[in-house]
Design a protein around this nucleic acid. Structure first.
Lengths: 367, 367
DNA sequence: AGACTCCCCGGAAACGTTTACAGCTACCGG
DNA sequence: CCGGTAGCTGTAAACGTTTCCGGGGAGTCT
């Protein structure tokens, strides 16, 4: 009694066989109709009806096995809690979704083993491609990237000769923009709160900071430089250490999370921002606009970099023979209240912390 | 000349056939050795060697087709930029990863069509299970959840009789905790900045606020209630509207993003926090600790809810016959500087905004 | 009217893996 | 010395889909 058991999948769900049998056609015809290619009007009607009646929905895995494509794209970033990666992810997601694919997100925690393991797992062919934004790069890494079986696009600095699709920014120049701005508004004792120096962004920004100061003829005071990691708590702690031994009139921070930590530390120490200390973050995330006062920040075009990376990846998935490409997104400085120019005035506070020059809800000025 | 072409996959990568041929055994033996089940010492050696030589790595899709499991688990949340979901995601990721699976994250934007589409796509069997945290629930939704072909766990309120694994909190009670605390510290003109009332959390928190005020015999002043959405910008705008027409001495916010917006609006309007206005957020995210002053917030145990949801899901994947379960995580209030008790003092500011009673770096006190 | 084209259909082979089954050898106990 | 058992091996079938290919019917052109 009942339908043939063999027509349905192990868990009782309908397969192509089920609808083919019910429609009285072969599985080939059923498959063709369901994919919208070919079929006489009569067959189409019967198959559609049968499919609707049994509630057929194709098994994506079987389809992938046949088509050699999964419709999945992976993104690997260090810290999913960092708003800059959220923005990048949103941009990537938009592009990826518009191609009918889905995005798979991995948090690597910045640990190298984690990341290479991920790259090796790519060989399992579970995704059609991957975007990775490594903050540390080793040779092991590079070889894993180069002979990856699926297309990979890297967001961030990479050895100049690596034959890998790559979209980067010039964070060295980004730091210079911040320093130029601070110098132009009269700051001289400019401090720098950085992330780890053994990371690519950390090292680049450190070099950029030193070069920018030198260019302005300002001697570097090592007491004004502090290092933590790229998180809020470390940024705050690093700033507290810095304030305990030095007296900056401006701080550049290697990203916005650090800058928020610095702001907290400064206010807790009774410094006014920007009157006593001007503050500039980096990445220009939503967080910068959420602070009071709003933070100036160097935009590294994270959304734009994400968008471009996604496009590069899609192109490479479509055509693996493309030559490796490299794109660059220029940084730009967004000036907000935290580094607004202030009239030189008496040190003691005379009112609330509100910045006198710029309304805090203003969107800032791009330099 | 050369090896047989038929032994390798379309793109030239080795398959089980490749290593089997190279080792001089059948694909069955090769597969067994590679899976660590059976095989004579000699066979094991030959297969291992052959696999290493050709760099064999199994095709996960083919394996999935056979085993009917993909090793993927999906998470669908409204807004990936909201730190509360980041924390939840981290907790889920930890559990999921410890079971050897990977997590796939979707942002639904709170749009219902988006979410039901996602649920329907589940039928494609691309994931082994899914955790979804809907903020709006329709009948359509419910039926899609109930007859989903793969296990689903819901984080959040759900109709009492829905036969779906569910982990929730009591945000109504959470709001009560906030109101009780504010009343106990002498506040009487307590405002409420909420998210949309047509969402489940929005409606629940609104009801909770009204009930709590009533319990304290405080009449509800509609001018002290404002609604936006659950984002920062809306929270700030809503607070500005509220301040333009009323003069609260405390604000409860429906989540931390709103609370941060409210803090910004308050400070921009020259109100001191907590002296003039006490502020309590909700979700107790990292963001609350990043602010200056640090925000009091009602913890809804998002990490804990995520952890439990993941565990429920894994159990259900292991045994589909389990009866539907429901777990509850109690809310708790974390008091920080933004609602610290203050001595009644003169309205005009006498110094910086720093709260006089609590050091801002203190971690807060759970009530 | 016959040849040719076009379209539709069904059988069967793929995609790469796991696994049930049966055959074989070698060994052990009686 | 023989039946039984244990362990290993290879053949082949599955998982559910797409697609190649050949056959056949209907229509069209000459």
């Amino acid at each position: 009694m009942g339908r043939k058991r063999l027509q349905e999948s192990a868990d009782g769900r309908p397969t192509v066989h089920t609808v083919a049998a019910r429609a009285g056609v072969s599985i080939a015809s059923a498959s063709r109709v369901l994919n919208g290619v070919g079929g006489s009007p009569e067959t189409i009607r019967k198959v559609r009806e049968a499919a609707a009646e049994v509630g057929y929905v194709p098994n994506a895995i079987a389809r992938s096995l046949q088509s050699q494509r999964t419709g999945l794209v992976a993104l690997a970033v260090e810290d999913i809690g960092n708003p800059v990666y959220v923005e990048m992810m949103r941009a990537i997601e938009a592009v990826v979704a518009s191609s009918g694919r889905q995005l798979l997100v991995h948090a690597t925690g910045g640990r190298i083993d984690n990341e290479t393991a991920l790259l090796r797992r790519l060989a399992h062919r579970y995704v059609d491609g991957m975007i990775v934004s490594p903050i540390r790069v080793t040779d092991d890494h590079l070889t894993a990237l180069v002979d990856s079986p699926v297309p990979v696009v890297v967001v961030g600095q990479l050895g100049a000769d690596a034959p890998i699709d790559n979209v980067r920014t010039d964070s060295r120049h980004g730091v210079a923009l911040a320093v130029d701005h601070l110098v132009a508004t009269g700051r001289r004792r400019i401090g720098f709160v950085n992330g780890p120096l053994d990371t690519v962004p950390g090292a680049t920004r450190d070099a950029g900071f030193r070069a920018a100061l030198a260019r302005h003829g300002i001697p570097l005071d090592d007491e004004l430089v502090e290092v933590g990691d790229f998180q809020y708590a470390a940024g705050r702690a690093a700033t507290e250490r810095l304030l305990a031994r030095a007296d900056p009139d401006a701080l550049v921070c290697a990203n916005d999370l650090i800058a928020v930590g610095a702001l907290h530390a400064l206010l807790a120490a009774g410094r006014r921002v920007p009157q006593d200390v001007a503050l500039v973050g980096m990445d220009d995330t939503e967080l910068a606009r959420m602070m009071f006062p709003q933070l100036s920040s160097v935009s590294l075009g994270s959304a734009e970099r994400g968008r471009r990376a996604a496009e590069l990846l899609l192109q490479r998935i479509a055509d693996a023979a493309l030559p490796p490409r490299r794109e660059q997104v220029p940084p730009s400085l967004v000036v907000r209240a935290s580094s607004a120019a202030t009239l030189p005035g008496p040190r003691p506070a005379t009112g609330p912390t509100a910045p006198p020059t710029t309304h805090p809800s203003s969107e800032g000025v791009t330099a």
